[in-house]
Design a protein around this nucleic acid. Structure first.
Lengths: 341, 341
DNA sequence: AACCCGCCATGAAACGGTTCATAATGTAGC
DNA sequence: GCTACATTATGAACCGTTTCATGGCGGGTT
């Protein structure tokens, strides 16, 4: 059980009493020390220490209105992609002395909603969200009520919401085209649910590449939905695929964590990469280049993504939203090519 | 610029007026709907929708006092070790419908202090902290003022503060002893600053192993402080070491991110692992087993660590603190041994 | 001496909820 | 018809800050 305070926390009134001044003066010491005579200030500061007074943030915020905090809601806090983005956000925020609170929705719309509500109720200046659903009506509502909202890693179609994204259609296209170039004609795509926009977009990109190459997606593509977008999800998905018998020659994974699970499984199953099966990941996280079979991956500018999102939140246009779209690049390594580079 | 609300947010009084009821009734609809007649409730709910009313969390909390949120402050949100711990925390909290806010101190005591203050001022039920300094007086102060505090990944000597940790002395010892067993007599330790307790403890463990083996640490050990505990830090540190000429035959890295940077650098420098140089990491993150040279690493039970910490915060003893200490294990792989397993 | 001004300190209003004692209304029992 | 009681709704007090109009005071100017 969390231990309750022995008794009520000291309030500004307690401090005022102890220092023999009025509450207004204590508040001034706290917020505009230059307005109060050094002598009094010291007395007040002594009383503050004495009572180990801590300002009540709720009361402060209730009255003052503003707070220099922004929130970020990502799909999975254990995914290096999102934490790298978070670092980008933090660095930008530091410049303006804002603080960041991060929460993870775990791909769950309910959790997203819950954290969104929490942030909104506590009056954050704005919130950056990687939505877990295709529908962003709930985010529009937040925006309408006056809280800043920036879509993260996801383009916005709505004029009232800014977004910072990377072209996922193009990313899917790059990956698929590369595999086609390598001679594959039957490709598995371990994707997340299409309710996550990024997944749907990457799928679209893959289709585009296939059609351009004159292939029929119905036969050339096997899309499997991974249950959780991490190594365990990748492992389960590839096992399912291997057991199904009709095995493709290449696997495109919706992110590098999934690819990690795939590589791990293929190794234990003695399936050689890339000769028996080529693998392509997404995000190009730090370890991708150092894997036993260095992983071909679609690189996204994580840092810039986060920094730009924070920037839009802090300095964005007042009325019209801005939509930033970065371009991904493909980094070809050994997992998909016998002749990388 | 963050766009201000067109005008003041709707308050409970606005809702009351619109629905033709009193503020008390609106509050009841919000908090104990069963106490209000279905007809009135519907009118109030309609008004809430109409005005798109969102409760003001500050006001609510100011009056009601409590909040079901806890905070976590970790050293580096981009380090998989900490995010895995965060996952463990989240899962435990979910059971009690608590929410988690994560902040990253970036090894900076000032940032830690800033976030700590933010959490405390906003009245979180408790906070889990991986302290950036050896001194935890500031945490004791928070505890005394009535906010729950649990030390994360770090033992507590103080009876008033609970802690959940993994034995870092033992971890350092395991790693060093293994390298000694492999025949190395000159070991580099790419460590973080000793102000971070874990780093100091691991150092102590290394010393212990060296002494037990009858070696003089002064000659057998080269400790280098990495500037930032990530791949870039590892890269810079190992480069410095290589340039210094007098090259050791084994490198123990304070975490797997640093080890990743080391492996990357050694590969570009054409130094073979483990024959030219053995490498051991710490944390056994997900990708460690899948690296080009699978990485020997000290494994810590991340999930249990987080879950237990959350548990202590929610159900911990009222008066006496509890100190949980997990034991690390060494996972031997090819980066340090020609005959792994 | 009268006036003005700047400097500090004061104390009450306001922020937007929750809570609780009280009132209003309806129902049942005698 | 009267009392007893349950059910709903009311509205004022309160939480702990910030803010601002007000006032006291001392010194400089006319």
């Amino acid at each position: 059980m969390i231990q309750p305070a022995a008794h009520r926390r000291a309030s500004i009134a307690d401090v005022a009493r102890a220092a023999g001044v009025s509450v207004g003066t204590v508040s001034n010491v706290l917020n505009r020390p230059e307005r109060v005579l050094p002598g009094t200030r010291e007395r007040v500061e002594a009383a503050i220490d004495e009572l180990s007074f801590v300002r009540n943030g709720s009361a402060r915020q209730l009255r003052a209105g503003t707070i220099t905090t922004v929130g970020a809601i990502v799909l999975d806090i254990a995914n290096p992609f999102f934490t790298d983005v978070a670092r980008g956000i933090e660095e930008r925020l530091d410049r303006d002395d804002f603080t960041l609170m991060v929460a993870s929705s775990d791909d769950d719309p309910d959790r997203e909603q819950r954290y969104l509500r929490l942030f909104e109720e506590h009056g954050v200046q704005g919130v950056m969200v990687v939505p877990a659903t295709n529908d962003i009506e709930h985010l529009l509502a937040v925006r309408r009520r006056g809280t800043g909202v920036v879509l993260l890693d996801r383009p916005s179609s709505d004029p009232s919401i800014s977004s910072v994204a990377v072209d996922d259609v193009r990313g899917g296209e790059l990956a698929a085209r590369h595999l086609l170039d390598e001679g594959h004609t039957r490709i598995a795509f371990l994707n997340g649910p299409h309710t996550i926009r990024q997944c749907a977009d990457r799928h679209e990109g893959v289709l585009k590449a296939l059609v351009e190459a004159g292939l029929d997606p119905a036969t050339a593509l096997v899309e499997t939905t991974v249950t959780s977008l991490n190594a365990e999800g990748g492992e389960a998905a590839i096992r399912g695929l291997l057991e199904s018998g009709d095995r493709p020659t290449a696997v495109f994974c919706v992110n590098d964590l999934v690819a990690l699970g795939v590589l791990r499984t293929l190794r234990t199953e003695n399936i050689t990469v890339p000769t028996d099966m080529a693998v392509v990941g997404y995000d190009d996280v730090a370890f991708a280049a150092e894997l036993s079979t260095p992983l071909t991956s679609v690189r996204q500018p994580t840092h810039e993504l986060g920094a730009r999102a924070a920037d839009l939140l802090l300095n964005g246009p007042d009325t019209t939203a801005e939509h930033v779209m970065f371009q991904p690049t493909l980094v070809i390594r050994r997992s998909s090519s016998s002749t990388p580079r």
